[in-house]
Write a protein that binds this DNA or RNA. Structure first.
Lengths: 233, 233
DNA sequence: CCCGGAGTTTGCTTCAGCGCAAATACGGCC
DNA sequence: GGCCGTATTTGCGCTGAAGCAAACTCCGGG
């Protein structure tokens, strides 16, 4: 198993340039596993026993409120660490992780963390940068929700999805995994109705093309104007 | 200077029980400074050169949008680390830090971080726990903003302030630093008008007592019911 | 002691976006 | 190829909270 994963890992940003010995330290305690679409990698409030690296696929991180509302915290893309509660000194996962498509995941037991961190400092640094970037991103979201209206927020969310997980097609840039209006609503704090209306009107304006569980941005530039609320019409 | 700071630090959660030698490692590269009310400890987008520990006072962390809207990310209380961009691999401060009252702050140059982290692992662990707790808190805020209405959000914010920075008085628990309706609005993504209206109506119901830059919670239990939207009336 | 400015309260109007409801369009499966 | 469940679209009415405007209150300073 290591030999395959090894070449995958070595190609990731944050792991490139590591000596082979360091890679061995990293991979020895790791296991890889497949998660079919819609299966859970870990559950909110469960005891955190492992941390993970997404080798392929896309994962949705969801928090559910006591009242039963769901909010999508973020999507994890290939090559990203996730579920790293151990690096933050937490004992449970604060959210659930669900495979948005079939996924391959590398996992380490939390017990491997201290050793890994001290022997391969670059690994720890990558984890902390990931956390830092996520904190910053989450704060940006708070700011968006505080200061922008729904159309701008949805535009920002779609742009973020497209830039983090976009795939070029003949029509434009398409979000690389199935995503419903409801999902977008849960990322932006709105309703699927409002998302649907806006996507429709954007489609009329030729900014996007969308279908069932699919969104393609055909005119990113205008969409950015929408996100900044600087469109004329 | 070290002798005074030393006893202050040793009493903090996260630093208690450290051997005196570790404290020396921590304090040797540190400087302490006073910041009068309303002065800036660091500015948003400025290059991050230091990280900080608040010895006394209260600090407001504010992010300003390109459009000029302000959002209060959080308040820092005595004994907390802040401005720890270096621990997240960032080179600039993502927000500004302003003294809400006269403050005393301990600061370290970023260059001291790697050495400190490796020689006093407990210090690094404290920093990472701080970041983890903040990420979680920020995500909770996103969820609140997505799923709750204004009255509940303001109730949650006031409860958080009171539990993190409350001071017991004969009337109830008072927020320990001057805070305006505008400030509360910037923490919850509303307007000072709405905050004012709600505080007034809560005062009529006997839940809080508030005045100029001052909020005292007299009935925390009912306020919790408000936050959960479970009040009868 | 009076003045001025910052902070607060309150009334009125407006509207973005939600809730509800129903019709419609896919896409996968048998 | 037809059926069914899920996803999407769209109309309509309602309302929470924002925007605007004005009065008021308190505190510190001269």
């Amino acid at each position: 198993m290591p030999t395959l994963d090894r070449s995958l890992i070595a190609g990731l940003p944050g792991f490139a340039g590591l000596p082979g010995e360091a890679l061995d330290h990293i991979l020895t305690p790791a296991r890889s596993a497949r998660f079919p679409k819609d299966s859970e990698v870990f559950s909110q409030d469960a005891e955190a026993t492992s941390f993970f690296l997404l080798l392929s696929g896309h994962i949705r991180v969801v928090r559910t409120t006591p009242a039963g509302d769901q909010v999508i915290a973020r999507y994890i893309n290939e090559g990203e660490l996730f579920g790293i509660a151990v690096a933050m000194g937490r004992t449970t996962y604060p959210a659930s992780a669900v495979a948005a498509v079939d996924c391959v995941v590398l996992s380490w037991p939390n017990s491997a963390w201290p050793d890994l961190q001290s022997r391969v400092p670059a690994f720890g640094a990558t984890a902390y940068q990931t956390i830092g970037a996520r904190l910053q991103e989450t704060q940006s979201r708070v700011i968006e929700m505080s200061t922008q209206q729904v159309e701008q927020r949805i535009a920002s969310a779609v742009l973020r999805l497209v830039s983090q997980s976009g795939r070029k097609t003949s029509e434009g840039i398409e979000i690389d995994f199935p995503i419903t209006r409801q999902d977008i609503a849960e990322m932006t704090g709105t309703t699927l109705h409002t998302v649907s209306r806006l996507l429709s009107s954007w489609e009329d304006e030729g900014i996007v093309k969308s279908g069932r569980q699919k969104v393609t941005v055909t005119d990113p530039h205008t969409l950015m104007l929408v996100a900044e609320n600087r469109r004329r019409k």
